[in-house]
Design a protein around this nucleic acid. Structure first.
Lengths: 145, 145
DNA sequence: TTTACTGCAAATAATTTGCAAAACT
DNA sequence: AGTTTTGCAAATTATTTGCAGTAAA
């Protein structure tokens, strides 16, 4: 488990205390290998020890995001999805019918990044962009207009 | 006020009843000329007559969205933003510091639209995409890493 | 007159907060 | 020891829902 150690070390280096709760939360995120919600982390940690509170999960996540160790994305489903910053950039294709989320190549956003910077002076955070639409599987189910 | 009449006519044509509440809600959206929230519509309509319920606003908005007369966008601030479909396609640049929202040209998303279709079979709904980042004004306030 | 629509009030659901007790360093 | 961090429970916020009464058609 090398990656969660990096995160834990970063927490320490920033002057924050290492508690068993934080350690377990960090491990849950680092080992997930995908985006997870606060609730999922809560369930996962609770099944290991029983001793955690959902408020602690939220507070720790806020901290990790602020330190830049974890990224968060709003996929428009009312929850916030978290992932280790180690998880490379990509965008999320969110289907409005089945709700499925596909990760797409980040490269196709690069030209947009540049143009937003030039034309609007806007530095976009495209590393976890959520794009709504209809997935390939749901294409046929949709009534053609 | 020609545009709200279009929406009202469309409601009628679809077999829905025209109530004073719906009329006022539709007018609020059509005349806003920008995206507004359910709460804003509520306040606006209430100041005109006092007789509306927030639940009615939500139910009417759901209906209008379903009929395709109104579009809704999640700008990641916990609210849903509504606009008349008459309001042309564009994307929203949402600043994560000051929260300001800038409308950007839709044209720069067209290449992405095409590539998502080709490579992933995903038909993106980019007409009101929200892009998180940092606006020009907040650029200087941010601590350079 | 029929039944779609509204108002009201209570229910959700995810997240946040205040405060006293517990535990890192 | 001293301050950070946690747990608990209550608060918040945006939105939804059940149901009985009201009003378009």
């Amino acid at each position: 488990m090398p990656h969660c150690h990096t995160l834990i070390a970063a927490l320490r280096r920033s002057g924050y205390r290492l508690t068993p709760q934080r350690e377990m939360i960090v491990e849950a995120i680092a080992h997930a290998g995908r985006h997870i919600t606060a609730e999922e982390i809560f369930e996962q940690v609770r099944s290991r020890t029983g001793a955690v509170n959902i408020a602690t999960i939220y507070r720790t996540l806020d901290l990790l995001v602020e330190l830049g160790l974890v990224s968060c994305t709003d996929l428009g489903d009312g929850k916030i999805w978290y992932a280790s910053s180690h998880h490379g950039p990509h965008c999320h294709l969110v289907c409005r019918y089945c709700g499925c989320v596909t990760e797409a190549d980040y490269a196709l956003l690069i030209p947009i990044d540049e143009r937003l910077r030039e034309q609007y002076g806007f530095v976009a955070d495209l590393h976890h962009l959520a794009i709504p639409g209809v997935c390939a599987a749901c294409q046929s189910k949709t009534n053609p207009r």
